[in-house]
Design a protein around this nucleic acid. Structure first.
Lengths: 109, 109
DNA sequence: TAAGTGGGTTACCTATGGGTAAGGGATACA
DNA sequence: TGTATCCCTTACCCATAGGTAACCCACTTA
């Protein structure tokens, strides 16, 4: 912990980072986009079983608003919308990897 | 992502790791215990403004059940109970640090 | 007898996240 | 005219996380 963090400010900053990942579908969406993949709305809908149109749109908008996802609209008919990660969104990948490693350590020591 | 993760299993595993941190007070509690600190129930109550007895007990029990916190009861009167992180709980510190760094990167590029 | 101390538990209420179902608007095609 | 496609939005409902307030237990001290 570099700066002058108190337990409260550190916790608040981590919570703010995690807030971006909150929601039943966000992690699934991110893992569908990690690695530079580009996906259409309807493609995500097909690949993610159980997600409703409302939740898909809502969570994608939230990820976009938070700067993890870039949304590109092509003014065609019928419309085409593509989603991909921003650089910052992609940078989350190793962090989540760290979480996975931490979790695996649990019963190993 | 080493293993044979699908987006769904990777997301589920990350969610399982994050579940341990969910709750309004857990991160604050962790940051009060990082670095090998040992604290009594009443001490935590004093240091964490706004937390109720119910929530303090509840979240500490959850962290204990998840293996992050060790609870030690001294059979005295009045009772004394001490809380500290397990090794695995302490190992979460660098992971959260990674999250903080990721967050700080957001507007820097 | 009464009150204090430490570490809780229990009962009850409310706010919010996520669910389903349905509608909506632009364009093309038959 | 009617229907299909794509990408949503709106209305409504429910389950659960978290809030407050009050109670509990064992023992000591006054």
């Amino acid at each position: 912990m570099g700066k002058g963090y108190t337990p409260e400010t550190a916790a608040a900053d981590v919570a703010a980072a995690l807030k971006v990942l909150e929601g039943r579908w966000k992690l699934i969406l991110l893992f569908h986009l990690f690695g530079g993949q580009v996906r259409r709305y309807s493609e995500l809908k097909k690949r993610i079983p159980g997600i409703s149109q409302k939740m898909l749109a809502q969570q994608l908008r939230a990820l976009e608003a938070d700067g993890l996802v870039r949304r590109t609209v092509y003014p065609e008919v019928p419309p085409r919308v593509e989603y991909q990660l921003t650089d910052w969104g992609q940078a989350l990948c190793p962090v989540l990897d760290g979480l996975l490693s931490w979790r695996e350590k649990r019963h190993s020591q």
